[in-house]
Design a protein around this nucleic acid. Structure first.
Lengths: 330, 330
DNA sequence: CTGAAAGCGCTAACAA
DNA sequence: TTGTTAGCGCTTTCAG
């Protein structure tokens, strides 16, 4: 079969232990024997078997990544940040789509743990008791990215969604908007229900504006639900739409234009992601800009610290967001 | 530590082999002892260690996926197809971005092989002798997705780019177009140079139209290079732009509109991908529609066949494309 | 600085 | 139907 550490040892007239040392860069090897070993490694074309190494060392240098849907630009951009940092720290990534399905999420965690990943980076809509139970059971570090643990126990990387909601509202009220249309993602997700929607509602209340339920449309982040949102909210006469995703924002804008309106003249629209999409459409989307790549990168960096058992002062990190005003607002 | 197959065997008063049998669904186990084993597995919370299993069985049920850039929608959609089929056949995926960098591609193949993946699904711009050498060396099946092996040796899944180029040209010539602007991806990629560009050139020649070099712009698939393409080609008076990617097509369209032109009235634009983007912009992009998800899915399916040593009649599969006329053409 | 040897947790003959 | 026994290829004490 293929050449093993034993073959190298025999050919180089040393023990397996010595070969192992040079392969792993252990300094306790005489330069001359190191040279000899390196040469026979090259000569034989030896490549260490990471599976055997993983079994012996109990480290696989691979981490599991649970992601809702890699074909969604929001997550794809997060994933790129995750993978880049993983590579930087010499980890590989096992990537699986969950479609935010609970059973699938749990199963993925289990199979990844079965594959002895050194850590898990989890993205999903809701962290339930079952998730926590599983995370505890598998006994490897877990970090959430763009995902909230309501109890604040699990390490996570997010922006301050509520503050961002406040920023939008404040800005728009100052621009004299009084009637808001909210197009939000699924309300069973804590980020939407507890942070964004509550953020909108409370911020509006600060300015003595009451957010009517009929002005809130619950979408599913998709373009189509943006279209639907516009058509059901337009009669409530909002002057501005606060939209949870870039795709939905596009749906809103196009539905408006199909109804003979124009954005931002008749309605203004603000999104809440800032994927690459936002800059590639006309009108370019004004948006709460989330640092997607960085959220992924920082989450992965945090995970590497846990995997190396380094001290971490702050398990719950909040990255800065900013408002990006482009052409879908005046 | 955690519970092993040996613990289960002891607690259930059977041998490791028997436990292994029930875990692996081997039918040669008396129902009553199976029941006993299953119960103690549940009681102890035993979870098989896939690394140990991989070492013993020489199968890891994971495949390596080399992808240029997961944050690019084109590849993200391919990846989703790949992952779905992998899941269906009980494989996991190790996913890494190469940025189409040769050294990185080679290194990725090596580390994936070191991790004993059962197969590799490769996406990249160019297959060189070094790739082939590496693929041969690692001795696991490889399938290319949306990637061409010019010698036709490696299994691959693509559309017929040249035929697609012909379809576009024929359609447009019949619509009386005579002056074409070609905005193509990097010409060091065989798909662009040998298939698409040659396809355009030869098809045009069929209709006695000579494609001038100055009417060809080599971009890098990005929005920005689409903008640049329009600005450098517009003076050559093309009436239609054939563009290699949805992002570049958007760049072309927006650059045109920034110059006071309107698409499709002043220029028509046809793209060559059909990512989700194409349907979410205005004007919606007319395009050669590549079945992205399917290319990924079929490639992964093909790989599973090789990994299971099933017979495969056709190593080089060509999926159907179609023309999708939306709003960026008349 | 180097080697011997005991595992890591599981699969896979081979026996029984 | 079940058990015994070698490994799989490597890391990691422990000696020396």
């Amino acid at each position: 079969m293929s050449v093993t550490i034993y073959d190298v040892a025999r050919e180089a007239n040393v023990s397996m232990a010595t070969v192992s040392r040079v392969v792993n860069g252990n300094p306790n090897v005489k330069p001359s024997t190191r040279k000899k070993v390196v040469e026979t490694i090259d000569r034989l074309g030896y490549r260490p078997n990471a599976v055997a190494r993983g079994l012996a060392s109990k480290k696989t240098t691979t981490v599991g990544v649970v992601i809702p849907d890699i074909s969604n630009s929001y997550y794809a951009e997060l994933a790129r940040g995750i993978e880049d940092i993983a590579t930087m720290y010499n980890y590989n990534i096992i990537l699986s789509n969950s479609d935010e399905n609970l059973e699938r999420e749990i199963r993925l965690i289990q199979t990844m743990s079965g594959k002895q990943v050194d850590g898990i980076l989890f993205m999903g809509s809701t962290i339930t008791a079952r998730h926590k139970h599983e995370f505890k059971f598998i006994n490897v570090p877990v970090v959430l990215a763009a995902t909230i643990d309501e109890e604040g126990e699990l390490p996570s990387v997010n922006i301050d969604y509520q503050a961002a909601a406040h920023d939008i509202v404040e800005h728009l009220v100052n621009k004299n908007h009084k009637k808001f249309g909210i197009v939000i993602g699924p309300l069973d997700e804590p980020i939407n229900r507890k942070l964004k929607l509550t953020g909108y509602r409370e911020s509006l209340a600060e300015f003595n504006i009451q957010l009517e339920d009929e002005c809130v449309f619950e979408g599913d982040y998709s373009y189509e639900s943006g279209v639907e949102a516009f058509n059901t909210l337009k009669d409530k006469c909002p002057t501005v739409f606060l939209v949870g995703s870039d795709e939905m924002a596009l749906g809103v804008i196009h539905a408006a234009s199909d109804s003979g309106y124009t954005v931002p003249n008749d309605f203004e629209v603000i999104s809440f992601e800032d994927t690459k999409l936002a800059k590639m459409v006309r009108p370019r989307l004004s948006t709460v800009s989330q640092p997607l790549y960085d959220i992924g990168a920082v989450a992965m960096r945090l995970l590497t610290k846990f995997m190396k058992k380094e001290l971490v002062d702050n398990h719950v990190v909040t990255l800065p967001h900013r408002m990006e005003f482009r052409e879908s607002t005046k």
